[in-house]
Computed example of a mutant assay.
Amino acid sequence: MSRIRTRVRPDAEASAATDSAAHRYENRLLLILFLAFGFVFFDRQALPFLAPYIAEDFHLSNTELGTLSGVLALTWALSGLVAGRLSDKLGRRKPILIAAVVLFSCFSAAGGLMTGFLGLLVARALMGMAEGAVLPLAQSLMVEASRDSRRGLNMGLLQGSSAGLMGGILAPPGGGVDRRAPRLAHCPAPDDRARSAHRGLDREVGQGSTARRPGPARRRGHP
């Protein structure tokens, strides 16, 4: 019996250590993928909230604004199909996912440098191509690393909560900044305007009284 105990104990300890490492990897992966897809969706949702400012700066119509949103959705859908199939065929998901996130960030930054509708259209199309690969690959990685008791929770946090919390909650305040505030900073304060008005009025009154003031009376017999 003593021999059986000594043989079982190392196996149990090794199994517990393996389970603990797997749980830590699962939690770390969930956090990384949650932030990755959340920030991607955050950037994607920025356009609708910045649309009034973009339309004013680039002189875009409502049709052009809708096209900018639609082209990203189109390339996103096509890219998800291609990237998912490619990852299944190659059996390599992490490199493709990392490349997709990096490319999406680059295309998003390039969109901020564009000065016209066509440039924004190309940038948004490329953003959709890169973003389409993020969610399918993130879901595949999360399913493989999830325990049976955590699979539904992990997928809900990854797909629903990250997009809703970061893209739907954080994006509106970040995109809805009123650009009129810097302009108001250059305007004088009400007290300053009032003091300036009073000084101008006093100046005008002083000039008027000086103009109407009679000169010194001349004495008779003197030039």
Rank of each mutant, 00 (worst) to 15 (best):
Gly206Pro: 00
Ile96Tyr: 14
Arg150Tyr: 09
Leu141Arg: 02
Thr115Arg: 14
Gly132Ala: 11
Arg183Tyr: 11
Arg180Lys: 11
Gly119Thr: 05
Leu113Ser: 04
Asp191Val: 13
Pro188Ile: 09
His198Gly: 13
Ile169Gly: 06
Arg92Lys: 14
Arg92Asp: 03
Pro172Gln: 03
Arg193Cys: 04
Ser140Gly: 11
Val122Ala: 09
Leu170Glu: 00
Arg195Ile: 11
Thr210Cys: 13
Met142Ala: 07
Asp202Ile: 12
Gly208Cys: 08
Ala110Ile: 03
Asp178Ser: 07
Ile169Phe: 14
Pro172Ser: 02
Pro172Lys: 01
Leu121Met: 09
Ala99Cys: 06
Cys106Val: 15
Pro172Arg: 00
Asp178Gly: 02
Leu121Lys: 06
Thr115Val: 09
Ser146Pro: 00
Arg203Pro: 08
Leu141Thr: 01
Cys106Tyr: 07
Arg199Val: 15
Leu141Tyr: 04
Pro173Ile: 00
Ser105Cys: 13
Ala123Pro: 01
Arg195Ser: 12
Gly91Met: 06
His198Glu: 15
Ala138Met: 10
Pro182Ile: 04
Met127Asp: 13
Met166Ala: 09
Met155Ile: 14
Arg183Phe: 06
Gly128Gln: 09
Ala125Trp: 05
Leu165Trp: 10
Val102Met: 13
Asp88Ile: 02
Phe107Leu: 05
Arg147Gln: 11
Arg92Glu: 08
Gly160Glu: 08
Gly128Arg: 08
Ile98Thr: 15
Gly111His: 12
Ala138Gln: 07
Arg195Ala: 14
Gly176Asn: 09
Gly176Gln: 09
Gly132Asp: 05
Ala197Phe: 12
Pro190Gln: 05
Pro172Phe: 00
Leu126Asn: 03
Ala185Leu: 15
Lys89Ile: 14
Asp178Glu: 08
Ser108Trp: 03
Phe107Asn: 00
Ser140Phe: 13
Ala100His: 12
Val143Gln: 10
Ser196Ile: 11
Leu97Cys: 06
Arg93Val: 06
Met142His: 04
Met166Pro: 10
Asn154Asp: 03
Arg147Lys: 08
Leu157Ala: 11
Gly200Pro: 13
Asp191Asn: 11
His198Thr: 15
Ser146Asp: 01
Arg150Lys: 09
Gly156Ile: 07
Cys106Glu: 04
Pro95Glu: 02
Ser108Val: 00
Pro190Val: 09
Gly128Asn: 02
Gly206Arg: 09
Val205Gly: 08
Gly119Leu: 05
Ala181Met: 14
Asp88Tyr: 04
Leu126Ala: 06
Ile98Arg: 09
His186Met: 15
Gln159His: 12
Arg193Ala: 05
Gly206Ile: 01
Val122Phe: 07
Phe104Ala: 07
Gly174Ala: 15
Ala194Val: 07
Gly206Asn: 12
Glu144His: 10
Gln159Lys: 05
Leu126Ile: 01
Gly206Ala: 12
Met129Leu: 06
